[in-house]
Design a protein around this nucleic acid. Structure first.
Length: 599
RNA sequence: GGCCCCGUGGUGUAGCGGUCCAACACGCCGCCCUGUCAAGGCGGAGAUCGGCAGUUCGAAUCUGCUCGGGGUCGCCA
């Protein structure tokens, strides 16, 4: 045994014991005849004292120690002398009086210090991830991730779900994201694809009578990265037979309250999780994943300003676009510099611009506001009555700052909802101690795809329309709502799910609507549809981003912080230098020739 | 694919046309020190400023291209 205890364990009750500890040299404080070593492992720090008088050999050796060397120390646990306690350390009331020291391994000088309050470029951290992960914060995140997984597994097992693994090497399905593909050696010119989700597999498991399935599923998507998006991520994936939407939502609520309770009992989780329709979410927040911890709802001014005399508003309204606004309470004194910043912000969210409207705090009420009280680029173009009507509609008061965005509906919604979140952040409106889960339901089944000039599945092709909407599949596809639901937490989409289609006629109709020929359907989904002809139970389920919920539970704002070996924005692993070339022999075996890109 | 920000010793930053063969902090190396815990004192080494091409009498500093990193819009069934 290299150790009797871990570094963070010994307490006053252990004093007098002779123990052996192993770990990394966190810091050395050499006082000449007396040397202190902070010995570190995953569990914490322990101060080790080397005294020239009592252990000359160990003391001499301790003088050679350097940061991150791996050592083994034998010594006696002792209460620290009066006044020498370190209240910052859990082990700060004791220390080890070393009698023996063994150097187990040396270390090069580290590229950065193993400290939590680290300020090092992400790429450097990833290049030396094995050092980066030694930081207590990273261990905490990995441990939290572990605990979240255990809590989820316990809950799912308790609800009679079966944990079943599904293959990673499967077939490309041309829906959705780009696939990562793997060439087949045995079948030259053929490729496996890594799963974007185990969607079809879990549906097959339902047809197989497995009743309730779950899995921590690795999912791969070859799309551009973001702070909360990696090329591979882990989903808590589950599917249930003989259920309706509400049954699935009940499981979700139970699962997530359990996960939070087990890992962050300090957080407040209001239950039951509220249900909000997609339409309501868009109307009130401009987003299908609203942060409902605070108000600042989005108003619609299109009708009021359609004939206001302000050209931008009029042309947007005439083109069928939207004029929407939020109110930043008490922000009428924002400076030009501050509003310019906000303009840059909304531009980066895709909007053309942003029109601020300051309502001076001097007036006692909105009705007493005069043109003098209003500061805005539209002030000289729009009548006072219209300005007031805009303020009334948004519930703006004297002293408030209205922020108005005009443009195509979807562009406005993206920008105004991002702006709302940004203002909420600036004004400190969102309580970080509250986890406000929200079910967004009744998503449209289809959305119009301008590129393809046709309907596309909002979620995926197997999601079922609401029974009452089936009749509209022919007459008005855009109005058909699905048995589709998202779980949203504090403005972050955690996952999507649906009740699946098991009726062949409806399935064929859906394929037809999104422009799949029977041949394409057979090619892409024949296996699943054939299975459905052999007795498919009604079923539904969900895929949930594990990394994101762990990120939120950890209080991190980047998903890389809760993934042991994440990739950079260019989908590179700087430690492995992946992806990399393969040998000519490998290429030969795979019948692959690499050609220069045409440019 | 678009937009924005960043790239200076090991790490993080300062310098933003000559006074910079580059400053500071931490780290590193050496010496001293028996109670420190971001130990302390003294001394020292270490970057030609991501790369290339230009502008200029002169560039870390300006311009163009390029590479790398981060954020974001598109994209992500």
């Amino acid at each position: 045994m290299y150790r009797d205890m871990t570094c963070g364990q010994p307490r006053q009750s252990d004093s007098g014991k002779t123990i052996t500890l192993s770990g990394w040299v966190h810091r050395r404080r050499d006082h000449g005849g007396l040397t202190f070593i902070d010995l570190r492992d995953f569990s914490g720090l322990m101060q080790v004292v080397f005294n020239e008088d009592s252990a000359p050999e160990a003391h001499a050796l301790a003088g050679d120690l350097r940061s991150e060397w791996v050592i083994q120390v034998k010594g006696t646990v002792q209460e620290r002398r009066v006044g020498a306690d370190n209240p910052d350390l859990p082990t700060g009331t004791v220390e080890i009086i070393a009698s023996e020291l063994t150097v187990l391994n040396r270390s090069e000088t580290p590229p950065f210090e193993v400290e939590d309050d680290l300020n090092v470029a992400d790429e450097t951290r990833l290049r030396y991830r094995f050092m980066d992960l030694r930081r207590p914060r990273m261990y905490r995140n990995m441990k939290l991730r572990h605990d979240v997984i255990q809590a989820a597994r316990n809950y799912m097992v308790g609800e009679d779900f079966l944990e079943i693994e599904t293959p990673i090497l499967l077939k490309s399905t041309p829906e959705g994201a780009r696939d990562y593909v793997v060439p087949s050696r045995v079948h030259p010119g053929s490729f496996y694809a890594l799963p974007q989700s185990p969607q079809q597999l879990k549906q097959l498991l339902m047809v197989s009578g497995m009743d309730r399935y779950f899995q921590f599923a690795h999912c791969f998507r070859d799309e551009d990265l973001r702070a909360d998006r990696q090329p591979e991520h882990t989903q808590i994936d589950f599917e249930m037979s003989f259920v309706e939407q509400e049954d699935v939502l009940q499981i979700l609520e139970g699962l997530y309250t359990a996960m939070v309770r087990e890992t962050r009992p300090d957080l407040e989780v209001p239950t039951p999780f509220p249900r909000m329709t997609y339409a309501e979410a868009i109307e009130r927040y401009g987003s299908d994943k609203p942060d409902v911890r605070f108000g600042m709802e989005v108003s619609r001014l299109t009708d009021i300003v359609a004939d206001s005399g302000f050209g931008v508003f009029e042309s947007v309204a005439a083109a069928g676009g939207a004029v929407r606004a939020i109110v930043a309470p008490g922000c009428a004194d924002y400076t030009r510099r501050q509003t310019d910043e906000l303009i840059e912000f909304v531009k980066s969210s895709g909007a053309q611009g942003l029109i601020p409207m300051h309502i001076a705090a001097e007036a006692d009420s909105l009705e007493e506001v005069t043109l003098e009280d209003i500061r805005s680029p539209i002030r000289n173009h729009v009548s006072l009555e219209t300005l007031k009507e805009m303020a009334r509609t948004t519930d703006a008061e004297p002293g408030d700052l209205m922020l108005i965005i005009a443009g195509p509906e979807q562009v406005v919604n993206v920008a105004i909802s991002n702006l709302r979140v940004e203002m909420g952040r600036r004004l400190g409106l969102a309580d970080p101690g509250v986890f406000n889960f929200l079910f967004v339901v009744d998503f449209p089944l289809f959305e119009w795809d301008d590129d393809r000039d046709g309907w596309a599945a909002m979620h995926h092709v197997f999601s079922s329309p609401r029974p009452q909407d089936v009749g509209m599949l022919d007459s008005d596809p855009g109005a058909v709502l699905g048995q589709l639901y998202d779980l949203v937490l504090n403005g972050v989409e955690l996952g999507s799910g649906s009740i699946r289609i098991v009726d062949r006629a409806i399935q064929e109709k859906v394929f037809e609507l999104i422009g799949h020929s029977p041949e394409q359907v057979e090619e892409r989904f024949g296996h699943l549809l054939r299975a459905f002809q052999y007795g498919a139970p009604p079923h539904g389920g969900m895929g949930l981003g594990l990394d994101r919920i762990v990120m939120l539970l950890a209080g991190e704002d980047n998903i890389r912080e809760v993934i042991a070996f994440p990739k950079t924005q260019a989908a590179v692993d700087p430690l492995f230098e992946a992806p990399g070339a393969i040998t000519d022999e490998q290429l030969e075996e795979l019948s692959i020739r690499v050609v220069e890109s045409g440019g």
